[in-house]
Amino acid sequence: MTQLDNKEAVIDMVTSLSKYYRYTTRAEQQLTKLSSEMDLVVHYLNIQSLQTNRIRYSVDIPEAMMSQPVPKLIVQPIVENAIKHGIEPKKGPGTIVVKGWQEGRMNRLVVEDTGEGMEPDALQSLNRKLLEPMDEHMGCGVWNVHQRLAHRFGPGSGLLLSRAESGGLRAELRWISEEENR
């Protein structure tokens, strides 16, 4: 981008990188508001879209949900997997959609990609492995996200993977609101 004299893209990249690294290196709190987590995700998506020029994204989460507490770095690994395993292997542009909603005390946040997706058997096996102790065949990112949500927020909370309508992968993060935050 510098060689092409694209100063605006360089400024955007540096700004996003600095905010991304500032957030990831702060370890004083394990919980954060969803709004802070989504700021990180948007910076990450901006960095990725500037690097490859193939990634499009949209984020649609109701303002009321943004104050919900979540473990730090709970959404970014899912978005990273969507890019790495969904968009990158596919030729041409790809899209990441992040949307959220609340149903009573249940918060739902979905990350969908327009990648190749997974075969139904592989998807079922991966969902099953999320419930088991981690082994050398299981990537730690999605397993860690599921376990952290389930342990912090209790039954019904966690990660569920399924096929997106686009044919790519759909990752749904679910967690129950704590009473004092509703």
Rank of each mutant, 00 (worst) to 15 (best):
A64R: 15
E178L: 11
S67I: 15
K33E: 14
I61R: 06
Q3R: 12
I74K: 09
P93D: 15
E80H: 13
A164H: 05
G168L: 12
R26Q: 14
N107R: 05
P120R: 00
V41E: 04
P133S: 09
L161Q: 02
N6M: 11
K7D: 11
S36V: 08
S166H: 10
E28H: 11
Y21C: 08
N53K: 13
N6C: 08
S35K: 14
T95P: 05
T32Q: 08
E172L: 03
A164L: 05
R22A: 09
K129V: 05
A9G: 05
R148K: 12
G117M: 05
E179H: 13
T15E: 10
G156D: 00
M138H: 01
L130D: 00
I78V: 12
T114R: 03
L173W: 05
P77Y: 09
P133T: 12
L4R: 07
S67H: 15
P93Q: 14
M13I: 06
E103G: 10
Q51M: 01
P77M: 13
G167E: 12
K19W: 06
K72T: 15
D60G: 08
V79N: 02
E165A: 06
K19T: 08
M13Q: 08
L173V: 06
L130W: 01
E116Q: 15
K99L: 00
M138G: 00
Q124D: 01
I47D: 03
L131N: 12
Y44H: 07
S157L: 02
T52K: 09
K129G: 03
V79R: 02
E88F: 10
R182L: 15
G94S: 09
A64D: 15
Q3V: 10
R128G: 13
K99W: 01
T15S: 13
H43I: 11
S177P: 07
N53E: 13
P93V: 13
E116L: 14
A27H: 04
R163L: 12
E136Y: 10
E179W: 11
S177R: 15
Q76G: 06
L34D: 09
E132T: 05
V59P: 02
D39S: 13
Y44L: 11
D39N: 13
L45A: 09
M38P: 02
R170K: 15
V97Y: 06
D5F: 07
H151A: 06
D12F: 08
V41F: 03
P62C: 01
A64H: 13
S49I: 10
Q124I: 02
L50P: 02
C140I: 14
A122I: 01
K72Y: 09
I78S: 01
L159K: 02
T25R: 03
M118C: 08
N107V: 04
V75C: 07
V14G: 03
V98S: 01
M13V: 12
N107C: 10
C140V: 15
M1Q: 08
G158A: 07
R163G: 10
L149I: 02
E88C: 06
V10R: 00
T52R: 11
A27K: 04
H43D: 15
L50T: 02
I176K: 14
G86Q: 06
Q30F: 05
S162F: 00
E8V: 00
R174K: 07
R108I: 05
L34S: 07
A122W: 00
K91E: 03
